[in-house]
């Protein structure tokens, strides 16, 4: 059973909480404490809007253990509006095909469960943005 390695990432996983560099304003996700842009300390928390667009994507039909029951599923690299790229599943795709550039928005979904008795792991995925 694994608990703490997921629990400690709750804030990031549930609501895309990353960091912003106080020196150069660079937005960081995932958080990494040292700004990759200017090399300075960057620990100020920053909650991303969750809006972005598809940088690239593919479909997984041969899944690693723990994800077998979700196949086929779509994985993407999403470019967040604030800049960073993030790897995440796409969900609720509907009938319209995904394309590079499709606008997406973050939702918190079940990523997988740690076996039948272990914890349910929740985190960010992205869905096509509501055309509201």
């Amino acid at each position: 059973m694994e608990v703490s390695r997921h629990w400690r990432l709750n804030k990031q996983r549930y609501s895309l909480v990353g960091e912003v560099c106080p020196h150069c304003e660079h937005k960081l996700f995932p958080p990494r404490d040292i700004c990759p842009d200017c090399g300075e300390d960057a620990r100020d928390l920053f909650e991303f809007s969750g809006k972005g667009s598809v940088y690239s994507f593919t479909t997984v039909s041969q899944a690693p253990a723990g994800f077998e029951e979700s196949v086929p599923y779509t994985v993407a690299i999403v470019q967040l509006d604030e800049g960073p790229l993030v790897t995440a599943q796409l969900t609720d795709l509907g009938d319209k095909p995904v394309e590079i550039g499709t606008p997406v928005e973050m939702v918190t979904r079940k990523l997988r469960s740690d076996g039948d008795q272990g914890m349910l792991i929740y985190g960010y995925k992205f869905r096509p943005a509501f055309a509201a």
């Binding site: 609720d92 979904r109 079940k110």
Partner: peptide
């Protein structure tokens, strides 16, 4: 609900 949804995820939204 979709495969990755449950009362927790739906409540969050």
């Amino acid at each position: 609900a979709g495969l990755d949804e449950d009362v927790i995820t739906m409540s969050i939204e």
